[in-house]
Computed example of a mutant assay.
Amino acid sequence: MIGNLLIAGHGWMVSVSALCAVPVRLTAAQRRQLTKIARGYTSPYRDRLRARIVLDADDDYPNAAIARRQHVSVDVVRKWRGRFAAEGMHGLGDRKRSGRPPRFTPVQQTQVKALACELPATSGVPLSRWSSAELADEAVTAGVVASISGSTVRRWLRRDALKPWQYRSWIAPRAADFARRAAVVLDLYNGVFDSQPLGEDDYVLCSDEKTSIQARCRCHPTLPPEQARLTRVEHEYERGGALSYLAAWDVHRGKVFGRCEPRTGIAPFALVEQAMTIEPYASTRRVFWIVDNGSSHRGQAAVDRMATTWPTATLIHTPIHASWLNQCEIYFSVLQRKVVTPNDFYDLADIEARLEAFQNHYNLAARPFNRRYTKHDLDLPLKRLAAHHSGPPAATA
């Protein structure tokens, strides 16, 4: 019978049924690519198998022979041979699969996310913050879902960047004239005062106090880092007292100067005298001192005292709870990271020497901070905060 007819070809016997197989002809580039995949040790097994099937098909092996060579069924050979003949290299990839049917509806997902956006006390749960597992338990208790895992909840929340287990503190401005006083400070940073640009003989200084820098003498010396080992600092220490560091930052020149005092108060505010007796501040037209509302320079009394002692100096207070407006705080953050932490000083003299040395070192490469925040940028959060406190608009009759 015709189905049993055998013919000779390439040194083996081929059945007539093999002649019906889809022909495969590879280009030189395709053969190099498939050979690389078939011989690659890092290639997935399924990719190596499919590449070998196509290579054998290009060598005119029948499907049955390819199945024996690759230890698979004829149907598998026929499948990948046909896909390559129809689609080329793209046909050797997996088809998109529908996957397992979803267990949860979009409404249930939205309800769980809405639950995460509420404080636990709203649901009567004695917690301060939600975790993924606790949200999963509450979703089951509230009847939103029959059962759900904490990992599924976390995956849903991650899509919308929701992290109810994290928090950050904030404080609302209390001063009635917050916007006006903040605008004065921000204008000075941008070279403007009373709607007039500052001159070349006008200077802006930010001053602040870093209190209670303790001398903690470690019971054992600090060990330097080594390979696969961090710096080691002894946990136990002996207290050697504390100092306060007073500093002033020249906003537009990018220079800092300061001094250490045993305590804060009106007398230690002699930092003003230290600055106003050196150039260029001693002979300039105006020097604006931006300070917070600390006890040593609070209120109108401090303003009058400054004007009486130094007629060219003008004291500008930041609003209450707005120390972030003082650029000296930025320098203090650098000081905290690079000098004070970890606290490892022998005594108060060591603290004073280290702070003075760092101040001189910092001034060698210091430059003004790239601060572009203006009073117009402040308007948006203030308006949003005002709308939040005023509540939703009342319904009209």
Rank of each mutant, 00 (worst) to 15 (best):
residue 368 P to R: 01
residue 276 M to T: 08
residue 374 T to K: 00
residue 298 R to K: 14
residue 316 I to N: 07
residue 374 T to N: 01
residue 367 R to S: 14
residue 326 N to Q: 03
residue 321 H to G: 11
residue 368 P to M: 02
residue 343 N to S: 10
residue 286 R to E: 10
residue 264 T to L: 08
residue 359 Q to L: 13
residue 369 F to W: 06
residue 293 N to E: 10
residue 377 D to W: 00
residue 264 T to Q: 11
residue 338 K to Y: 03
residue 346 Y to R: 13
residue 300 Q to C: 08
residue 305 R to V: 08
residue 370 N to E: 12
residue 274 Q to T: 09
residue 278 I to M: 11
residue 356 E to D: 10
residue 355 L to E: 03
residue 352 E to Q: 04
residue 324 W to G: 04
residue 351 I to R: 04
residue 320 I to K: 12
residue 328 C to M: 15
residue 277 T to K: 10
residue 270 A to P: 10
residue 290 I to N: 09
residue 370 N to R: 09
residue 317 H to Y: 13
residue 338 K to V: 05
residue 336 Q to H: 06
residue 357 A to H: 06
residue 368 P to Q: 03
residue 296 S to A: 12
residue 333 S to N: 04
residue 373 Y to K: 00
residue 271 L to G: 07
residue 298 R to L: 14
residue 355 L to M: 07
residue 368 P to S: 02
residue 272 V to Q: 12
residue 326 N to K: 01
residue 286 R to S: 15
residue 270 A to N: 15
residue 271 L to I: 10
residue 346 Y to V: 10
residue 331 Y to A: 03
residue 343 N to C: 15
residue 321 H to V: 07
residue 266 I to E: 13
residue 314 T to Q: 15
residue 283 S to D: 15
residue 358 F to T: 01
residue 272 V to T: 14
residue 284 T to W: 06
residue 381 P to L: 00
residue 274 Q to G: 11
residue 366 A to T: 02
residue 310 W to G: 09
residue 288 F to L: 10
residue 345 F to A: 01
residue 341 T to Q: 10
residue 307 A to C: 13
residue 291 V to C: 09
residue 290 I to H: 09
residue 357 A to C: 11
residue 274 Q to P: 06
residue 287 V to Q: 07
residue 376 H to V: 05
residue 348 L to K: 08
residue 311 P to I: 08
residue 312 T to A: 15
residue 362 Y to V: 03
residue 348 L to V: 05
residue 281 Y to F: 13
residue 372 R to K: 13
residue 274 Q to V: 06
residue 365 A to L: 08
residue 320 I to F: 12
residue 317 H to T: 11
residue 340 V to S: 01
residue 370 N to T: 06
residue 350 D to E: 04
residue 347 D to Y: 02
residue 275 A to P: 02
residue 342 P to I: 02
residue 267 A to E: 14
residue 368 P to Y: 02
residue 316 I to Y: 07
residue 374 T to D: 00
residue 373 Y to C: 00
residue 265 G to C: 12
residue 378 L to T: 00
residue 312 T to P: 14
residue 356 E to H: 04
residue 379 D to Y: 00
residue 339 V to C: 02
residue 375 K to G: 01
residue 294 G to T: 08
residue 287 V to K: 05
residue 371 R to P: 00
residue 314 T to G: 11
residue 372 R to A: 06
residue 297 H to T: 09
residue 362 Y to P: 03
residue 314 T to N: 15
residue 358 F to D: 04
residue 325 L to R: 03
residue 295 S to C: 11
residue 382 L to S: 00
residue 317 H to R: 11
residue 319 P to H: 02
residue 320 I to Y: 08
residue 322 A to V: 05
residue 358 F to G: 01
residue 365 A to E: 11
residue 275 A to Q: 06
residue 301 A to Y: 10
residue 294 G to F: 13
residue 370 N to W: 03
residue 263 R to P: 13
residue 362 Y to R: 05
residue 314 T to H: 11
residue 309 T to A: 07
residue 313 A to K: 04
residue 309 T to V: 15
residue 313 A to L: 07
residue 298 R to V: 15
